[in-house]
C-alpha cells in the first residue's frame, strides 16, 4: 500500500534544495540574467558549508559543539561561497558583458570542480577509509525539528523538518511578495523585461543586476547546504548532489517564474524524483531511470502548454540572456 504520510516528508526533503535553487534563480532571471551556473553555485554553497563545519568540528575536537556556532559557521560559509560565485558571474556578464549562456555553463563546471577539489582535500585530511566526510555532529543541529513535534500524521507531514526547510518557504513567499508588491520588485522586473526602459526611467540597471544575481546565488547556495547538512545527514561525498541544480532550473520554467508556485512545485518535483523507490519496478534499473525523467517531462509539457496559450504574462523576462550597454545603438 502506498503510504502517503511517510512519502510526503521525503518528497519535501527532496524538494527543499530545489526550492532554494529555483527561488534564487527566479530572482536572478527577473533581472535578465540567465544564470546557468546555478548547479555549480549550489554545489559550492554545499562544500563551503562543509568546509566551515569541518574546521569547527576539528577545532572543538572531542568536546561538545556549541549549537549556535555549529549552525552559524556553516551557514555563513555557505553564503560567502555562493556570494563569491555570484559576484564572479556578475563581473563576467554585467561588467564585462560576456555571453551569459557560456559563462553560466562554465560556472557550473567550475563550481563542481571547486566542490570536488575541496571535498577530495578534506577526505584526504580525515584519512578516512570511505571517500566521504561525515559531519554528523553538525548535522544534528540542522536536522533538529524546529517545532519539536513529530507525532501524528500532521506532525510528520508538516512539523518534522529542520529550520532550513521552513526558511526556504519563507524566502520563497518573501521573494513573491518582493517581486509583486514592492517598488524595488517592480524595478527589478522592469530591468529584466527591458533594461533600456528601466535605465531611461532612472533605475540603476547594473546595481539591480548585481544585487539580484548575488542574493539569488546566496539563496541557491543554501540549497546545497540543506542537501548536505539535513538531507544527507552531514555526509559529503563528491558528485552525490547529482542533477538537482538542473532540476532547480527546470522548476523555474515549470512555475513560469513564480516563487510562490515553487513551494508546491518543488515538493511535486521532489516526489517525482523519488517516485521510482515507491513504485514497483521489479528491480529494473532502466525503469527506475525512466521514472527519474518525470520532472523533466512535465517541465516540457508545461513549456508546450505555455507556448500554446501565448499569454504574455507567462513568457520569460523579455531581455533574459541579454547584456545591457547604455550607449549601444
Amino acid at each position: 500500500m502506498f503510504d502517503f504520510v511517510s512519502f510526503f516528508p521525503r518528497a519535501v526533503m527532496q524538494g527543499i534544495p530545489l526550492l532554494f535553487g529555483s527561488t534564487g534563480e527566479i530572482l536572478t532571471e527577473k533581472s535578465g540574467n540567465l544564470n546557468l551556473g546555478i548547479p555549480g553555485i549550489m554545489y559550492v554553497g554545499g562544500i563551503s558549508g562543509v568546509i566551515g563545519a569541518f574546521f569547527y568540528e576539528q577545532s572543538v575536537g572531542s568536546g561538545e559543539l556549541n549549537g549556535l556556532l555549529a549552525v552559524l559557521i556553516p551557514f555563513l560559509c555557505s553564503l560567502i561561497g555562493s556570494l563569491l560565485m555570484g559576484l564572479l558571474y556578475c563581473f563576467l556578464t554585467v561588467t564585462l558583458r560576456s555571453n551569459q549562456n557560456v559563462t553560466g555553463l562554465a560556472m557550473t563546471t567550475f563550481g563542481v570542480g571547486v566542490g570536488n577539489f575541496f571535498g577530495g582535500s578534506l577526505i584526504k585530511l580525515t584519512a578516512s577509509e570511505v571517500p566521504s566526510i561525515a559531519l554528523g555532529r553538525t548535522s544534528i543541529f540542522f536536522k533538529t525539528a524546529l517545532f519539536g513535534e513529530t507525532n501524528g500524521w500532521f506532525g510528520q507531514m508538516f512539523l518534522s523538518y529542520g529550520f532550513l526547510a521552513y526558511l526556504a518557504i519563507i524566502i520563497a513567499l518573501g521573494a513573491s511578495f518582493f517581486l509583486n508588491r514592492t517598488r524595488p520588485g517592480l524595478h527589478l522586473r522592469a530591468v529584466g523585461e527591458s533594461a533600456s526602459t528601466a535605465d531611461a526611467a532612472g533605475i540603476n540597471v547594473t546595481r539591480y543586476k548585481y544585487l539580484s544575481t548575488c542574493i539569488g546565488s546566496m539563496i541557491a547556495g543554501l540549497g546545497g547546504l540543506y542537501y548536505v547538512m539535513d538531507y544527507a545527514n552531514g555526509v559529503w561525498s563528491n558528485n552525490a548532489f547529482g542533477d538537482r541544480g538542473w532540476l532547480a532550473i527546470a522548476l523555474v520554467i515549470f512555475t513560469i517564474w513564480r516563487p510562490s508556485a515553487s513551494i508546491w512545485a518543488s515538493i511535486l518535483f521532489g516526489g517525482l524524483y523519488i517516485l521510482n523507490i515507491y513504485l514497483p519496478t521489479g528491480g529494473q534499473m532502466a525503469l527506475m531511470e525512466l521514472y527519474k525523467m518525470l520532472p523533466y517531462i512535465i517541465t516540457l509539457l508545461v513549456l508546450i502548454v505555455v507556448s500554446l496559450r501565448k499569454k504574455r504574462e507567462d513568457q520569460p523576462p523579455a531581455s533574459l540572456g541579454l547584456s545591457y550597454f547604455r550607449e549601444e545603438r
Binding site: L186, H187, S194, T197, A198, A201, G202, I203, A318
Partner: peptide, 14 residues
C-alpha cells in the same frame, strides 16, 4: 515602456 506592465506601473517606474 515595459510591455508587460500597466500604464500606471510604467508611469511610476523608477
Amino acid at each position: 515602456l515595459v510591455d508587460l506592465f500597466t500604464a500606471t506601473e510604467n508611469i511610476i517606474l523608477g
